[in-house]
Computed example of a mutant assay.
Amino acid sequence: MRDFLARTLNGRAPQAQCGEQRGFSWQWREEGILSIAPDAEPVGDLVISAAIHGNETAPVELLDAIIQALAAGELPLRWRLLVLLGNPGALRAGRRYQAQDLNRLFSQGWQRFPEGAERERARLLEQRLMEFYRAPRRWHLDLHTALRESLHPRFGVLPASQTPWDEGFLAWLGAAGLEALVFHQSPAGTFSHFSHACCAALSATLELGKARPLGDNDLTQFRLADMALRALLRGETPVMPERPPRRYRVVRQLTKQSEAFVLHMADQTPNFTAFHAGDLLAEESGRRYLARYPTEYVLFPNPRVAPGLRAGLMLIDAE
């Protein structure tokens, strides 16, 4: 269990693939997948995933420190826990992905793509989540870091939901240091959308800072997320922030349809940069995309994606 990350990085299965320690048992399921079950009755089923993008490494180091604390008996466990390192091949290579962006392939989005490492991994992760969840209380925290700077350095993205969000879950996200919450309004191929739509889990993508190489992360910047995760695993309520996260709603996706797509934003435009009604956002093959609301904010602007993929999201204040 202690060498879960090391074994994932060297691509070798551990000799001991299951074990028992004081308070819990564990099982190495396969590459990058570890399940841990408390001896006492669990409060629910919790999935924590990281490295869905292989170059987003701070959450991997954060998870490894939590696993070491569990193994050392320093951290009690109240949940059935499934730890996932989503894209081991990309993590070893220090790349965002190998052939396809894994976080666009869920909810059977993999069916649209040719055979490849990410396609097979998406299918496997979907299967493992559906096998894992069985308790009424189900959470999924998908830990990421962003490619670019952000006016809200730490924020969460929540999948489209047909029911109102549990306010306790949203409050926990604030306790984890998230300054903003972004609410999707339509289905997506993300891991958190799959776990919410197909497994009825309370799910969120947590963007915890800037992407750095493995070993170059300053984990003190992730202190609030670390504290909130450890409190959650203990079954405790973390310290709540004085100010709740600001809430945004997605109103449009900018989709790149061809190489003629032009995004009218500087390469270093931070997430949550504001635009105003009438501002030219993008154009493609004679079609112009203008801001429609008095103030809109951009999230994940990236014109270098492959045709057919998201080149940005436009948001408005949800409050």
Rank of each mutant, 00 (worst) to 15 (best):
G286A: 09
R12Y: 09
E115Y: 04
L63P: 03
G278P: 02
A201R: 00
T205A: 13
A211Q: 14
I316N: 04
E179L: 09
Q185V: 14
A282V: 09
A188S: 14
G209M: 07
F300D: 03
L84F: 06
S25Q: 10
F106W: 04
D142M: 02
A201T: 04
A306G: 03
S107N: 14
P245Q: 05
G156S: 14
T255N: 06
A160E: 07
W139S: 03
D279R: 07
T163D: 10
R154Q: 11
R223P: 02
G308D: 02
F272I: 15
H152Y: 15
R96M: 10
G89T: 09
V182T: 12
G308V: 09
A71N: 11
S203N: 01
L173Q: 10
R234K: 07
G174I: 11
R230W: 01
A277S: 03
L151Q: 13
H140G: 00
L147R: 04
A50C: 15
A201Y: 01
G109F: 02
S186I: 02
Q21A: 15
R92V: 01
Q221H: 12
F183A: 02
R212N: 10
R137W: 00
L129I: 03
E20S: 15
A71L: 10
P114M: 12
V182Y: 08
P76C: 11
A58E: 06
D226I: 04
I316C: 09
I33V: 15
A50M: 08
G73R: 12
E131R: 11
M1I: 06
I316D: 04
Y289D: 04
L219A: 08
H184C: 13
L70Q: 02
H264P: 05
S195Y: 06
Q221Y: 06
P187S: 05
D3F: 12
S25R: 14
A51N: 09
N217R: 05
Q257K: 12
D267R: 14
K256D: 13
L70K: 03
T205Y: 00
R249A: 15
W172H: 04
A40H: 08
W79L: 14
E207C: 08
E283L: 02
G94M: 08
R137S: 05
A291T: 09
Q15T: 15
W165K: 02
D166F: 01
R7Q: 07
E179V: 10
Q15L: 12
A135L: 01
Q268C: 15
M314F: 05
A93P: 01
Y289I: 12
R247D: 05
A6C: 06
P244L: 10
G168N: 13
L75R: 07
L84W: 09
A93C: 01
A135E: 03
G308N: 06
A291H: 01
A204N: 03
E120H: 13
G86T: 07
N302M: 09
D166S: 12
L102D: 08
V251S: 02
A228E: 07
P294E: 02
R78W: 00
G278N: 00
L313S: 15
G156E: 08
E319Q: 10
P241S: 10
L143S: 03
Q185H: 10
G94S: 05
